[in-house]
Amino acid sequence: MPPEQRPALWWLFAGITLFATMDAAAKWVGRTYPLTAAVWLRYLIPTLMVGGYLFATRGWKFAHTPNPRVQILRGLSLVTSTLCFWTALHHLPLVEAATVSFVGPTIVVIFSSFLLGERPRRAHWVALGLGFTGVLIALRPGLAHTGIGAVAALGSATFYSLYLVLTRKVSGDEDSLSLLFHANAIGAIALTIAAPATARMPAGWAEWLILPSLGIFGTLGHWFMIKAYSHADASTLAPFMYVQLLVATFWGWLIYDNLPDGFTLLGMLVILSSGLYVLNDGRRAARQARADEVASTPE
């Protein structure tokens, strides 16, 4: 990695650590606090933080967007993904829920072909098959974890993949802070009707500490990821994203005394191999394209 891109790793690792910590905290507080209300706070706090900053720097039109329909769909996809993932956390060990979420990048292939008109390469379909195989190994349906936990984990990965593709669709029209604000604001608004009915005052110091931290960790995590991708491209950072599984494993061991078993570790490796396979194929295709360009240049 070139020296000018190395700061991207520090921003990336900071963002990953915050996301994994947020998931561990969500699993903890979800045992006693209503799920919908917790997710509502998760999105309300970033909305107020980012929205306040944008209002102070851009004035009354800070919330204007040229793509309102896509932004609404982005926000609904993201908040649904969170609801599904936190539901999965209630039924699955932290590491297994995190493992399933990493099949998301391969699901992006399907949505990209329909929504962006992109033509997936054969490597993408191979990776998609490998990723789902890894999920089946890690969750081993019918043998260990069945029911809503497995379905919710896969649902979370699917909705988050849709969110990523929609983000790519509008990223050329709006800056990163605007995208961050709208994603959180739509989620907060969508839950404002139902969540307050189930919300209650936090009970005990743990809930008082954890509930606000969910929104703060989410906001800072997204901001750090934005900083990371401003220093390096996605293909450069992709292999390091799997560090999040290590952080999730650490929190699962420290807080819940739970370590991944052999099936989960094997599923992790299969999902990891699917992502690295796509990354390697993309780099090989890019090298071939550059070589063809050089070969076709007249001397």
Rank of each mutant, 00 (worst) to 15 (best):
G52R: 03
G51V: 14
W40V: 02
W10N: 06
L18G: 09
A14W: 00
L94A: 11
C84N: 10
P34T: 12
Y43R: 06
R31Y: 10
V70K: 14
W60I: 01
T36P: 04
T80I: 14
P66F: 03
L54F: 15
L94K: 07
Y53G: 07
F85C: 13
V50E: 11
W10C: 06
F62Y: 13
S81I: 14
W11N: 01
W11L: 03
V79R: 02
L92R: 14
A14E: 09
G30T: 12
Y33T: 14
P3Y: 04
M22S: 08
W11A: 06
F55K: 01
Y53T: 01
K61C: 02
H91D: 10
L44H: 09
A8L: 08
Y43V: 09
P46N: 15
T32L: 08
Q71L: 03
A63V: 07
Q5A: 14
L12A: 10
M49K: 00
G52F: 03
F13P: 00
T87D: 07
V79D: 09
T32V: 08
G15P: 00
V79M: 04
L94S: 14
G75I: 00
Y43P: 00
F55P: 00
G15Q: 00
A26W: 10
P66Y: 05
G51H: 06
P46Y: 06
Q71Y: 05
L73G: 12
Q71M: 07
A88L: 14
R58Y: 02
L94Y: 12
A88K: 12
F62W: 12
G51F: 11
I45P: 00
W10E: 11
V70M: 05
G75S: 14
L35M: 15
T47I: 08
T47Y: 11
I72A: 10
L78G: 13
F85N: 12
R31M: 09
W86K: 06
C84A: 12
L54H: 13
P7Y: 06
L94C: 07
G52H: 02
T80M: 15
T17H: 12
T21W: 04
W28Y: 13
G75P: 06
G30I: 06
L94I: 05
V79P: 05
G30W: 05
Y33P: 03
G59I: 01
D23Y: 01
R69H: 10
T82W: 14
Y33H: 10
A88G: 03
N67M: 11
L89Y: 10
L44W: 13
G15M: 04
F62H: 10
W28I: 15
P34S: 02
G75N: 15
G30C: 12
G52D: 11
T87E: 11
L83Q: 10
Y53N: 01
L9M: 09
K61L: 00
I45A: 05
R58F: 01
L12K: 08
R6Q: 11
L18M: 15
L48D: 11
Y33S: 01
T17K: 09
R42G: 15
R58N: 00
